[in-house]
Design a binder for these strands. Structure first.
Lengths: 155, 155
DNA sequence: GTCGATTAGTTTCAAATGAAATCAGCGTCA
DNA sequence: TGACGCTGATTTCATTTGAAACTAATCGAC
């Protein structure tokens, strides 16, 4: 005799945490991507680069990659397109000729101060529709989950 | 004077829910993808198709797409590769010549009963490393979040 | 100093993705 | 019954992705 939970035929994808997480993340990314694409013509990668460069005054692409959890190829391309659009400046680091220094331009600072409220607004819209205890529980649980998975990944 | 929360320069990407969710989901997907690729040579898309076809006896590609939240192109390709590998059978639906019926083959049933325990195991490993209240809170909060975002998407 | 190893960033190329076009079969209404 | 629209699924094609190769510059050992 088999116990219910060990029977493969009973496996429910929709109750499987990695699946639920992936679905939720994809939905929110689509929503987010659509809003930023419509309002500013920005991809999520570009948005992330603007957000972290706006927060710290000057960052290298490598630092941006660390801060955004994106790979260096993605950062390189996002930064190139933002430089192209005149939102970012990229100079060779005077201390290290291999490295680059990314900064917001004036136009970049302007767009940065427009995109951040939209992000806060989106988050607030979500929060407003959730039960306070769900909302409050989500962030620490998610953070813990991220840590746990990072550990498992590294093994 | 500006309040702290409305100053764009103070925006912290790492405290932004959509970002945190995306990071957590990507990490778990990478871990999951690596394990299934190593152990069975399966992609996540293929894994999902096997999981839902294994649960329901016979499904059309469209039903699989609904059940897995994947688009029909992805399902079509995943199913084709599984048929290729002899894990799935695909026949024309006798009731409707446009539709197809996907079923597990014998080999498919065998692999299905191997992959499900690995999924449960992975989930259990994560659960074991989380505080019980975080774990317990995560699922309902995530489900609610998914619903909320789906609503916002549809507007 | 200079040579090999390493690091920062970019580019290349093959694989994955998904929107739109296509194909095939069903239903219906005149 | 046959023409039109609709639906299920696949294919095409342009775009995105990321691993690996490449370029350029620093670092460290001798």
């Amino acid at each position: 005799m088999k116990s219910a939970s060990s029977d493969a035929a009973d496996f429910l994808l929709e109750d499987f945490l990695p699946y639920e997480l992936s679905v939720a993340a994809n939905r929110i990314s689509r929503l987010f991507a659509r809003r930023y694409s419509e309002a500013f013509g920005l991809s999520i990668a570009q948005w992330r680069v603007l957000a972290v460069v706006g927060r710290h005054q000057a960052l290298s692409p490598g630092q941006v990659a660390d801060a955004t959890e994106m790979d260096k190829v993605k950062v390189s391309r996002a930064a190139a397109s933002l430089v192209e659009r005149g939102l970012l400046s990229q100079q060779t680091d005077p201390q290290d000729g291999r490295a680059r220094v990314l900064r917001l331009t004036e136009a970049g600072r302007a767009i940065h101060s427009s995109i951040v409220p939209l992000a806060r607004d989106l988050e607030a819209q979500i929060e407003a529709r959730m039960a306070p205890q769900d909302w409050a529980a989500l962030r620490p649980a998610l953070r813990r989950l991220s840590m746990v998975v990072a550990e498992l990944e590294g093994e």
